[in-house]
């Protein structure tokens, strides 16, 4: 089974961003036979996201949402374009993702906007963020302006959706991005302290590296 988490930062009900997300899911489900889709509509978590920024920890359903991002086999990130960039809520959610939690996760990026003039938002705003998070992003970004849902842009949008879905399938099915092993003797032996804590260096080794005088 391939778990795919879809993060939608659309604020309206109904939301054209969510509509785009649904079309992406439809195309992905056709490509990835065993896809299991989990939707995260950030609107529902907006208050909890602010709380988490203030307290330093996510709680309840937001914690589950972040876990489903962390554990996903692939991600689909969809945001409306506000003031020439991704929505603030989208960035606030991204700010809560733990460092390295999504490194190497195959990802599709998509955005909506009022007109075609914002279509580079994916390349200029979303891709740098995805690069920071270490996401493995498909080459085709899917941007949909209002006119693309029904007007003359509609066939081209459909083509882009299917191309992005095929690209995501190849990444999900074909590649494993594992961290390259450290060359022997280059670092400290790390001990895994489990969830929430990460790994740490055994103390005697740390002491040696910090202080020549040691114990």
């Amino acid at each position: 089974m391939t778990t795919i988490t879809v993060v939608n930062a659309g604020l309206r009900e109904p939301s054209s961003t969510r509509m785009l997300a649904d079309r992406l899911v439809e195309a992905i489900s056709a490509e990835v036979a065993d896809a299991q889709i989990r939707h995260i509509d950030l609107r529902q978590h907006a208050h909890a996201i602010t709380d988490a920024l203030l307290t330093g920890f996510p709680s309840g359903e937001l914690a589950e949402a972040l876990a489903s991002v962390r554990d996903a086999d692939a991600l689909v990130l969809v945001t409306p374009t506000f003031q020439g960039s991704y929505a603030g809520l989208f960035k606030s959610f991204a700010d809560l993702v733990e460092p390295d939690a999504v490194r190497g996760t195959p990802t599709m990026l998509a955005a909506t906007g009022g007109s075609e003039r914002h279509s580079l938002v994916i390349e200029h705003a979303m891709r740098p963020l995805a690069a920071y998070l270490g996401l493995l992003v498909v080459p085709t970004g899917v941007y949909a302006a209002t006119a693309d849902f029904g007007g003359q842009g509609a066939p081209e949008l459909t083509r882009r959706i299917h191309r992005a879905a095929r690209e995501l399938r190849t990444l999900v099915g074909g590649v494993t991005v594992a961290e390259a092993p450290e060359p022997a003797g280059s670092g400290h032996a790390e001990i895994d302290a489990g969830p929430l804590l990460g790994s740490f260096t055994p103390f005697d080794e740390l002491l040696q590296s910090v202080s020549g005088a040691g114990r």
Binding site: L197, S199, T201, P202
Partner: peptide, 12 residues
């Protein structure tokens, strides 16, 4: 609060 290295230091 959440630095395993400090728990390790106390234990050491």
């Amino acid at each position: 609060i959440r630095s395993p290295q400090i728990a390790e230091q106390a234990a050491f």
